[in-house]
């Protein structure tokens, strides 16, 4: 039987209480999070095996350069032959490692629904209009301060089939590389004050309140440009160790 939002909300609440009761800080979502039904058969039952080998290949990682992106890739509003519909915005921030050092010259990839909440993906069956002027995919390289910057439009919320009346809060998917493969991160950026936060098992899978708050961008009026675009700022911190010898020269 398809669960209702009430069923899912009850499960979310119980797991949140359980997290508080245990009292151990967990930054990332548990891979086993029953309110997100698709996780049931897709999470390992055994704990991961810890690797502490200073020679591990994963302490280094792939690099990207000027050949991998074009200047236009960072402007998602200019991929078509006309202006996409929706609220234009600038999204920018810095990518840092856990020591607070900038991640320089690395690839940032984003993808998102259009203003109506529809992805330019054949399998997205949400009967909201496609926008011929918006595909919703972008790329850029971080600069010397670790800064990324995209021009795009604000995505809409969209329904999904996790439970009856399930809606995802508006979000932009982000894919990030650090200076090591261990720092790889795929995540989602949300918008401040979205009324759907409490109902969404994907966001609520991050059971730590402060960690979850780090997935929400901040509106920044100083970043907003007159007659053009609203500004949102979102900084990202990549987890995981890197080889120390690679620190120089990046």
């Amino acid at each position: 039987m398809t669960p209702t939002q009430q069923d899912i909300s009850r499960e979310i609440h119980a797991l949140s209480e359980e997290y508080r009761r245990v009292g151990e800080t967990r930054h990332h979502p548990a891979r086993d999070y029953p309110p997100y039904r698709s996780s049931a058969l897709r999470h390992p039952h055994r704990p991961p095996v810890a690797v502490h080998d200073p020679e591990a290949v994963e302490l280094t990682g792939p690099v990207f350069g000027a050949t991998d992106v074009t200047a236009l890739d960072a402007d998602l509003t200019r991929g078509g032959t006309g202006e996409p519909l929706g609220e234009r915005m600038t999204v920018t921030g810095r990518i840092l490692d856990r020591d607070g050092r900038p991640v320089r010259g690395q690839l940032v990839e984003v993808w998102q629904a259009n203003a109506a909440g529809r992805y330019a993906h054949q399998l997205d069956q949400h009967p909201a209009p496609l926008d011929p002027h918006f595909t919703g995919a972008g790329r850029c390289l971080t600069d010397d301060r670790g800064t990324y910057r995209f021009t795009t439009i604000r995505p809409g919320a969209y329904p999904w089939r996790n439970h009856t009346n399930a809606w995802r809060p508006a979000h932009i998917h982000f894919s990030l590389f650090g200076s090591a493969f261990t720092q790889r991160l795929v995540t989602q950026m949300y918008f401040p004050g979205d009324p759907l936060f409490a109902y969404d098992p994907i966001l609520q899978s991050v059971t730590d309140d402060t960690a979850r708050a780090r997935l929400v961008a901040a509106y920044d009026h100083d970043l907003t440009t007159p007659e053009h675009a609203l500004g949102y700022r979102w900084d990202i911190v990549l987890d995981g160790p890197a080889a120390t010898w690679i620190e120089e020269g990046r």
Binding site: Y36, L123, G136, H173, T187, D239
Partner: peptide, 22 residues
């Protein structure tokens, strides 16, 4: 050594990365 900066949590790649990542 200063306390490490808390990391940004991971989230699922979802079903619709196909036109963006490959």
């Amino acid at each position: 050594k200063p306390a490490p900066v808390p990391p940004t949590p991971a989230q699922t790649v979802g079903p619709f990365y196909g036109y963006a990542l490959p």
